[in-house]
Design a protein around this nucleic acid. Sequence first.
DNA 1: TAAAAAGGTGACAGTTGTGTCACTTTGGTG
DNA 2: CACCAAAGTGACACAACTGTCACCTTTTTA
Lengths: 191, 191
Amino acid sequence: MARERKFSMDELFSSAKALLLKHGYEGFTFSLLADQLNVSRGALYKYYENKEELITDYMIAELNQFLADLQKIEHCQGFEAQFDFLMNLIFDMPEVQQLIKIAVQIPVNVNNKVRENKEHLDKLHLDMYKHLQSFIKLGKKEKNLKAHIADGLILGFIFQTIAIPNHFGIPHAEWVASIKEIISHGMFTNN
Amino acid sequence: MARERKFSMDELFSSAKALLLKHGYEGFTFSLLADQLNVSRGALYKYYENKEELITDYMIAELNQFLADLQKIEHCQGFEAQFDFLMNLIFDMPEVQQLIKIAVQIPVNVNNKVRENKEHLDKLHLDMYKHLQSFIKLGKKEKNLKAHIADGLILGFIFQTIAIPNHFGIPHAEWVASIKEIISHGMFTNN
DNA sequence: TAAAAAGGTGACAGTTGTGTCACTTTGGTG
DNA sequence: CACCAAAGTGACACAACTGTCACCTTTTTA
C-alpha cells in the first residue's frame, strides 16, 4: 500500500558501485548518487541516514553475491578444475578487491548501524578466506601447489593479478590465458 | 633576503604523499596538509594555486626520483641481475603504482599549469615504460622470459605483485623470496 | 471515497573546503 | 637602522555536502 519507487535497490547498488569505483570513498556523495538515479537527495535519506550506512549495506550485498558464487566451487572435482573455476570467477568480478580496500576506509564511529554492518562485512570477508583456504589446502595435498609458499600469499597473488591494468588492450582470451600460465608456471623458460 | 620557511619542499611532498595514500585524491585537502605541516592554509597558496597543481608537482618529483633509480639498472650485467635489481627497487617504492592510479583522476581543466604538469607526468610515465620495455626485450633475447607473453603483461604483473597486502604478517624476506619464485617459476609443482 | 502508508520534493541551517587579500612577522642588505 | 622581500596569518565571501523536515504525490484498502 504505497507509491511506486523511482529506483530499485539493484539500481541503487549498481549506481553506488560505479560512483565508489570512480570517486573513491571520500569522493562519494549523496548528491552524485541522487543525480545518477534522477531522484532528489532527500529521497535517499528515506532509506539511509548517511553514506556510511548505504555503502556498507551495498558492500554486504556484493560480498554475499560473491560468496554465493564461490560456494559453487564445491561442484568442481579436483584441484585443477577448482583452480580454473576460481580464476574465471575472479575475472568476472574484478572490482571485489578494490571494494574491500575501500571498505577499510569507512569509519565505524558514525552510528550503531554502521558498526554492525562493518562487523558483518568483516565476517563475510573472513568466511571468504576460510573457503579459499580449504581450496589451497586441497591444492597442496594433491601436490599441485608448492607447499612452502604461505597460503596468504598464494591467495593474495591470485586476487591481485586480476587487477593488472590492461593498458595495451591485449585481447581478453590471451590476457587470461597468459595470467593463468604465469601463476601456474612462471614467466621464466626452463633453460 | 627573506624570512625562514616553516617547512621544506621535502616535508611538503612527504606529507602530501602520506595524505594522498590515506585519503585518496578527492579526500586530499589543503586543510589536512596545512595541519600536518603546522602552518596556516593560506601559506600553502603562496606556492600553489590549488591542490591539482600541488599534487601533480609532487608526483613529478616522485616519478623523477623513481626514474633516476631505475636508470641504475644499466649497471647490472645480464638479465638475472637486472631482474633482481628491478624487484628490489619496486619493493623499496611500493606506492608508485598507487600514485600513478591517483594521477589518472586529476582533472586537467583546472588551469594551464595543471595541464602542463599532467603532460609532463605522462611523458615520465612513458619514459619509465620504455626503459622497462628494453629490459623485457633483453630477457626474451637471453631466453629467460617466455617470448609468447606480451611485454605489457609481464611488466604489469611485476608491478602489481608488490602491492599484494601482507595481511598475515609473513616476514619480509620470506615474502619477497616467495614472490620472486612465483613470478619466475609459478606456484605449481612440476608433477 | 476517505484514510493510511510509503515515496518524493525543495528549502533551511550547519559544517567543511576554496580562493583571496590586507596585514603582520622575520631576516638580509644598503 | 631603515627598508624591502619573502613567509606567514586570519578573516571574508563563496561553494559544496550534510541532515532534517514540512509538505506534496501516489497507491492500497477499509
